[in-house]
């Protein structure tokens, strides 16, 4: 009997509380799943489930099942870790973790990330690259990236996320604009906005432009730009503004000011393919990302960004479950 595989069947039936649904999730025929669970019960010499619950095929864990499930999950977790390491050994790169960060994460964050990972995992070399979010998604799916750092929102289906952290965005202005203190988005109206190219993150791009409109800032134009030298140049010229987190290195003549009501947030997390969850190097990297973003990036847990609760107005045509 393949113990690990049978334990996985056990855990899935326990999750679903239903043989039919568990079988569908596992891609097995239901009778075949039932037989395998019976086999495991014979092996342990105890019944794991009470059959015949709600809906005919619904099941409940027995007391013995509950006790064994906790142990089974630990075994599965370690087995996943084993396979995770094996995958990297197999690819001939046991000692390398392929990781990526998006643009503009900040030099102190990147330095701390590399430093702390090196310190805590002497056995694994961190191969870190700067990769745009959309490209990271493709590379994670293709397996050329073990773990990434993503700016949200982006399509995270099939991925597992580390702690999602956030920080409010402020506006960068030419110092010639004068004034001080928080700026209302509406007061920027008519200015042009420098923003990363839409195709490198359409969801985030749309979120930012929508938030601007909602708060009365209709940009005179949206200028596509990402290289700090270009972005800063446009801002210094007085023609355009851009959004950034506090603490970015600023050239002379440029000021950072917070936005009234914190309408814009930057949300970041580590992300990896769901199957890689147990690779210890991936886990360590995700943990270091969270720590560094909090300490060096001044980020806070994402729940902080929901303090000011906006009520979502449901319209019939877009309400859920239509």
């Amino acid at each position: 009997m393949d113990l690990v595989r049978h334990l996985r069947y056990f855990a899935t039936v326990a999750d679903e509380r239903h043989f039919g649904q568990a079988a569908a999730r596992l891609g097995l025929a239901q009778p075949s799943l039932s037989q395998r669970i019976q086999r495991l019960e014979r092996e342990f010499g105890v019944r794991l489930f009470d059959r015949g619950g709600a809906g005919g095929r619904g099941v409940e864990l027995t007391e013995a099942g509950r006790l064994l499930l906790a142990e089974a999950r630990l075994v599965l977790e370690r087995a996943d870790a084993l396979f995770g390491v094996a995958a990297r050994v197999r690819s001939g790169e046991a000692g390398v973790l392929h990781a990526a960060v998006p643009q503009d994460l900040g030099s102190t964050v990147v330095a701390a990330l590399v430093g702390e990972f090196r310190e805590r995992s002497p056995g694994v070399r961190l191969a870190l690259r700067e990769v745009a979010a959309e490209v990271q998604l493709a590379e994670l799916a293709a397996g050329s990236l073990d773990v990434g750092v993503l700016r949200h929102p982006c399509d995270v289906a099939g991925l597992e996320l580390g702690a999602v952290l956030c920080r409010p965005l402020g506006v960068l202005l030419s110092a010639d604009a004068g004034g001080e203190g928080p700026v209302h988005l509406a007061d920027l109206s008519g200015r042009e906005l420098v923003l990363f190219p839409r195709q490198s993150g359409p969801a985030l791009h749309d979120d930012i432009v929508n938030a601007c409109r909602l708060h009365g800032f209709e940009p005179g134009g949206v200028i596509s730009g990402q290289d700090p030298a270009f972005v800063d140049g446009m801002v210094l010229s007085g023609q355009a503004v851009t959004f950034a987190a506090r603490g970015r290195d600023l050239p002379a003549g440029m000021v950072w000011r917070p936005l009234v009501g914190t309408p814009l947030w930057e949300r970041v997390s580590a992300a990896w393919l769901r199957g890689r969850r147990a690779d210890p190097a991936v886990r360590l990297f995700a943990e270091v990302v969270g720590k560094v973003l909090e300490r060096q990036g001044g980020m806070v847990p994402v729940a902080e960004s929901v303090r000011e609760r906006r009520t979502v107005q449901i319209r019939p045509a877009t309400g859920f479950v239509r």
Partner: peptide, 8 residues
């Protein structure tokens, strides 16, 4: 509201 803020 929470869903729109937390991608996780």
């Amino acid at each position: 509201t929470y869903l729109s803020a937390d991608p996780g």
